[in-house]
Design a protein around this nucleic acid. Structure first.
Length: 895
DNA sequence: CCTCTGCTCAGAGGA
């Protein structure tokens, strides 16, 4: 019996040695692994020849996989060898981008610097992107002039921000595009050429992902808008194309050897060669350069990929010595030396400048490591793409499977609209999302990145190439982690020492005294605006539920604008950003530019949205002249807003943001205001991660109580409803704004009679124990009882719209929804920021509380504070009593 | 053992 794959955790690595074999001298290194994630019997894997280079970076605890190993029995033990046709993959769950392999081949430090400071806005990049888009259009048979015009138009904002004109860019693009067209029209390219453009490749086997510019007859074609007058393609370009060839080979090989099945030729297309002056340049000016792809190059790609994955195992920092970096002509040399100097890192190029203070170095390292841990959780999401290939039919809310294709239409832009009917299953996929659309198998089948246009009975997506739409998968993205890393870099390395002093507690934040009254009937709200206006560094506004936080924010923004400040308005979610704009609108302020994707911005706020295509000058000046710019923090970390500066950044729902997430907005401004409530929802973090799950808001409010004000009067809840939350979460400091708010009752609503309610529901807060039992994450008996309770309120005259039901698990939400089709039933997270006259909460758990109900107490705070006039808690009283806080809650609810 | 939003994606090139 032979295994085509061996995988396990490394438990021992011998010193490499040189031995004599029948073929001459050869290096080897023995590695002992335990299969089954470390649980299996120890097995020896011998790395031969160049694979011993990887042995130097492997550490115990890492996982390795070997494909097609030579296998033999020696003294009763199975031994495996990596040489010949075999391939070694280190940390296969870590997905390395092809462009990262390319960067590492140039210099490992370059790989690292790209990760820290990725949001660059430069003309060669913008031009290169446009040329690539035009290339794709030409492959899809579009007309050259139309393609250039449309793609330059699509890049309008980027071009404008660089101060360029559309005509000038179109001319530059034409020089490149003509070379492409000339090459495409050459006789060697026949009707039989089969082209695919923009092919997304994800490899489980090699732990690699990337997107090939084009694939012709199964072979990779890479477009480069740079110049290369040598006869050979540049080495890093060959590596990039070879990486795609390896993944194409994997798709073609099935269970066989990907190296054997890989295409044997790659093509690099250097479009600038055609545009240079032939009188001044010598050398080979033909744009297309082919090269042969052999097992040597393919294995080199894998070894390089392994070196990266091994370094990322413990968030290491490369020095430049890991590969043969040449610093003399490197255009990143200055940056490299500056970064290594400031972060006290070793660099082959040397260092300049003094290191930032120790506490900043520690901070940088702590957050860098935390963000990389978060990146690894994103990588685990990719694994779900191949955990459930067709047939396995995993219950997974990350995919819509078994779709029935109903048709496709070619659209004007050369893109395709693909349609299918769904099975009615629910998933995380929503309209506007970027997904992997496939013919049924997202990994080895025909798959394309696509945009979800409609998600009803009929499912409609748009993609670059046509396919039979049988399946959609969530496409995991490292974009957020990339941007967190950029924000960390900007905060520690680009901010002035004065700005950092207050972040690192070396100086108290300073305030100018402000006498002006902005809000005259609420002292805390007025003080919040005064603090914000007078802040020289930062101000903090703590806004518990219902305290008029959004109104205060809008008033604050107006006050800042009146002083002439340019304001950046941000929050984690699109919904929160749009809510803020609505509040500003309510105050009559509309000089706003909203930056964000079309699908992210709410319909009624589209009128403020910055158009990214069109006349470059117009697009750019609209952004540059806006006094108030609004965007999510993720967008703040992107390249568009990196070109902008602000006097003040105002960040809402700051308690929900990780520290680097907040910095993405605050580093764009001289000073900042954070508004939020650290007693409500914490940041959403995928990895178990203490560092990321505390918000900057919470840290600053703990360290600088004088820099903050708490809004203490709430306009939402009746006295009794707010009492528990006030005592438990706000030290008793939260109180009703008026007697009217405190005394509100359900029969204040038109047509509602309390007498029509059963006796146990007449109080403002009640507790009901339905004596149900938990089944998985549902409790059907409790769902029945909740349906009865809601029916009682309806019978007493409460409109369905005024009632909301909150449950801890999505399964229970579905269970209750089945019984209550016209009432809003949702999880806590989706209820945040809104409120209802009547709230019913389902606790599901019975017997014991061994699994977390609302994760932590902050979630229950959110749930309890959604109700205005009536709140009903439904659950197992005995189970809840086993927890101190829930126990006190039940006592309070029973009155 | 559960909750879950962001974001065009990954790659654009200089010498």
């Amino acid at each position: 019996m032979s295994a085509d794959r061996v995988r396990g955790v490394v438990v021992d690595i011998e010193e490499p040695k040189t031995v004599n074999t029948q073929y001459g001298e050869s290096d080897l290194c023995e590695v002992t692994i335990r299969p089954d994630r470390g649980a299996g019997e120890p097995t020896t894997v011998t790395l031969w020849g160049k694979w011993t280079e990887n042995a130097e970076v492997i550490e115990t605890g890492m996982e390795i996989a070997v494909y097609n190993p030579d296998e033999r029995e020696y003294q009763g033990e199975q031994q495996y060898s990596v040489g010949g046709d075999a391939t070694l993959v280190v940390q296969p769950d870590f997905l390395v981008d092809v462009t990262d392999i390319r960067a590492w081949v140039q210099c490992p430090r370059m790989y690292y610097l790209r990760k820290l400071d990725g949001a660059e806005h430069a003309y060669p990049l913008v031009k290169g992107t446009v040329v690539h888009e035009v290339f794709g259009d030409l492959l899809r048979g579009r007309d050259l002039d139309t393609a250039i015009e449309e793609q330059v138009d699509a890049a309008g904002l980027d071009i404008g921000l660089l101060g360029r004109e559309a005509d000038e860019v179109a001319g530059d693009v034409r020089d490149h595009a003509s070379a492409i067209q000339g090459w495409l029209q050459q006789g060697t390219l026949t009707e039989t050429d089969q082209w695919r453009s923009e092919m997304t490749l994800i490899s489980e086997r090699f732990g690699m992902k990337g997107r090939a510019d084009a694939v012709r007859r199964g072979m990779p074609v890479e477009l480069k808008t740079g110049k290369n007058t040598k006869r050979e393609p540049r080495f890093q370009d060959k590596i990039q194309a070879t990486a795609y060839a390896l993944m194409l080979g994997e798709r073609a090989a099935g269970a066989g050897s990907a190296v054997d099945a890989a295409p044997d030729t790659g093509t690099l297309l250097y479009t600038k060669n055609a545009a240079v002056d032939r009188n001044e340049e010598s050398g080979d000016l033909s744009p297309a350069k082919e090269f042969s792809i052999g097992s040597g190059l393919l294995n080199y790609v894998v070894r390089t990929r392994n070196a990266i994955a091994a370094m990322e195992y413990d968030s290491g920092v490369p020095t430049g010595y890991e590969a043969n970096a040449k610093c003399e002509y490197c255009f990143e040399q200055d940056t490299c030396m500056a970064v290594s100097g400031r972060l006290d890192q070793e660099s082959k190029a040397g260092t300049v400048g003094r290191a930032v203070p120790d506490e900043e170095l520690d901070y940088f390292e702590r957050f860098y490591t935390a963000v990389e841990a978060e990146r690894r959780s994103v990588h685990r999401e990719y694994a779900k793409l191949w955990e459930q290939t067709p047939g396995e039919r995993a219950d997974n809310d990350r995919a819509l499977i078994d779709l029935e294709p109903t048709g496709r239409t070619e659209l004007d832009g050369g893109r395709w609209e693909l349609r299918a009917t769904g099975t009615g299953a629910v998933s995380k996929i929503r309209e506007g999302n970027l997904v992997l659309a496939s013919d049924g198998d997202p990994v080895t089948g025909n798959a394309e990145l696509a945009r979800v246009e409609r998600l009803g009975e009929e499912i409609v997506v748009t993609a670059d190439e046509p396919l039979d739409l049988r399946r959609l998968d969530v496409y995991p993205s490292e974009l957020t982690t990339d941007r967190l890393q950029n924000a960390l870099h900007d905060a520690v390395l680009l901010q002035s020492p004065e700005q950092k002093d207050v972040l690192f507690g070396r100086r108290e934040p300073a305030f100018d005294a402000v006498e002006e009254t902005f809000i005259d009937n609420n002292d805390a709200q007025n003080e919040a605006v005064q603090l914000a206006v007078g802040a020289e560094d930062f101000a903090l506004v703590h806004g518990p539920p219902g305290t008029g936080k959004t109104y205060t924010l809008a008033r604050m923004v107006r006050a800042l604008v009146d002083r002439g400040d340019r304001v950046l308005l941000s929050a984690f979610t699109n919904r929160a950003v749009d809510n803020l704009l609505e509040a500003l609108e309510d105050q009559g302020y509309t000089d706003i530019v909203r930056v964000g994707t079309e699908s992210g911005v709410r319909e009624d706020m589209q009128k403020y949205r910055l158009e990214t295509s069109g006349d470059p000058g117009e697009c750019a000046s609209r952004l540059q002249n806006a006094q108030v710019v609004a965007a999510t923090t993720a967008t703040c970390g992107g390249s568009t807003l990196q070109t902008q500066e602000f006097d003040v950044a105002v960040v809402d729902e700051a308690g929900q943001l990780t520290e680097p997430g907040t910095l993405a907005a605050t580093t764009l401004a001289d000073r900042f205001v954070l508004v939020g409530d650290h007693q409500q929802l914490p940041p959403v973090v995928q990895s178990e991660n203490e560092t990321l799950s505390t918000s900057l808001f919470e840290r600053l409010i703990d360290d600088n109580p004088d820099a903050g004000v708490m809004l203490d009067r709430q306009y939402r809840m009746a006295q009794h409803i707010q009492a528990f939350a006030s005592r438990e979460f706000y030290d008793g400091g939260l109180r009703p704004a008026t007697g009217e708010v405190a005394a509100q009752r359900l029969d204040d609503l038109d047509g509602v009679s309390l007498d029509a309610l059963p006796a146990n529901l007449r109080e403002r807060v009640s507790f009901v124990d339905p004596d149900g039992s938990q089944v998985g994450n549902t409790n059907p008996a409790e769902a029945d009882r909740i349906a009865e309770i809601v029916a009682s309120y309806r019978a007493a005259g409460v409109p369905a719209d005024d009632i909301g039901v909150i449950a801890p698990y999505r399964a229970q939400v579905a269970e209750i929804s089945k019984r209550l089709p016209d009432v809003t039933v949702d999880t806590v997270d989706r209820f945040q920021g809104s409120s209802k006259e009547v709230i019913v909460i389902s606790f599901v758990a019975t017997g014991t509380l061994d699994s977390p109900i609302f994760e932590d107490y902050r979630r229950i705070n959110v749930a309890l504070t959604r109700a205005k006039k009536a709140l009903v808690l439904v659950g197992d009283g005995d189970a809840l009593a086993t927890d101190e806080v829930y126990g006190r809650m039940v006592e309070w609810a029973r009155g």
